[in-house]
């Protein structure tokens, strides 16, 4: 079986470490990075509105930059894994981030991903939109890690007013 590690800018180190601690040594580790299509889309849209002024396409430059950055991130993650008996594979994609990750998770044993929201407090906001979608829809087991030290238990929100403790 395979362990898939979703590499993001904010949480890649914690995810790699969690994968190393969890994966069986015979299991292949797949490191995957997805660049949001919106990066290109937003620039392309603004550029498209500049009718007649197209001597340099910022969207193409952004693709180039994002691709270089993703490769650098995957290279850093691969180096952090070091040598792995089960083998390492890297995947770089561009598109609808959460859907790409869910699609990649088909057939793997475990998906390791990091929280990408407000990581200063315990609670639902610590999951960004994409992570929330992936956790909700993943077709495999999910290991959800904090990118840094987990927040103090004191940041747990108080119970709602009408909440009565179970007897």
């Amino acid at each position: 079986m395979t362990v898939l590690v979703w590499i993001t800018e904010g949480s890649w180190q914690a995810c790699v470490d969690a994968a190393l601690a969890t994966a069986a040594s015979s299991e292949p580790i797949v490191l995957a990075h997805v660049t949001p299509a919106a990066l290109h889309g937003a620039a392309e849209g603004a550029f498209g509105a500049l009718l007649g002024r197209h001597h340099r396409d910022p969207a193409a430059q952004i693709d180039h930059l994002a691709s270089e950055s993703a490769q650098a991130l995957l290279a850093a993650a691969t180096a952090r894994v070091g040598t792995w008996p089960g083998g390492i594979e890297t995947i770089e994609r561009r598109g609808h981030v959460e859907r790409e990750v869910v699609a990649l998770a088909a057939g793997v044993r475990l998906l390791v991903c990091g929280r990408t929201g407000d990581t200063g407090h315990l609670g639902p906001r610590s999951l960004g939109h994409a992570t929330r979608f992936v956790v909700d829809h993943a077709p495999c087991a999910v290991l959800l890690v904090w990118p840094g030290p987990a927040p103090d238990i004191a940041t747990l929100p108080p119970p709602p007013p009408d909440h009565s403790p179970p007897r």
Binding site: Q13, A76, A79, G117, T119, G120, R125, H129, P147, G148
Partner: peptide, 22 residues
């Protein structure tokens, strides 16, 4: 979410500080 997520996250400076493996 995008703006708060990485506030505590590992940037390049942390990357070089967290160990010889990286």
């Amino acid at each position: 979410a995008d703006l708060s997520g990485a506030a505590t996250a590992t940037g390049p400076s942390t990357a070089s500080a967290t160990g010889a493996t990286s």
